[in-house]
Amino acid sequence: MINMLLAFENLTPMNPEVLKASLNILWQGLLAIFIVIALIIVAVSVTTDLIAKAKAYKEKNGEFSIKKFFKKK
């Protein structure tokens, strides 16, 4: 297999360092993407929730005021 691959112009036999680097990319990349996704989900949920509450407050009490909104809560 390795001999066959050596026939390829720019391929070298498997380098443990490259393999190690690719494994690092795997765990660091997957961890980072899920952290970003978790943060986006939290941020979107909080924003949606706040906007819905503010809307409900406005419908109930007329003019919306941030000061009154948080005081009321």
Partner: peptide, 24 residues
């Protein structure tokens, strides 16, 4: 959104396979 993240698995697995084959 979680599913969108999980569906990127192929990228990482392929990087490992390409490294095993001998690509820089």
């Amino acid at each position: 959104f979680i599913l969108g993240g999980a569906a990127q698995l192929g990228i990482f697995v392929t990087i490992i396979l390409a490294a095993l084959i001998g690509f820089p």
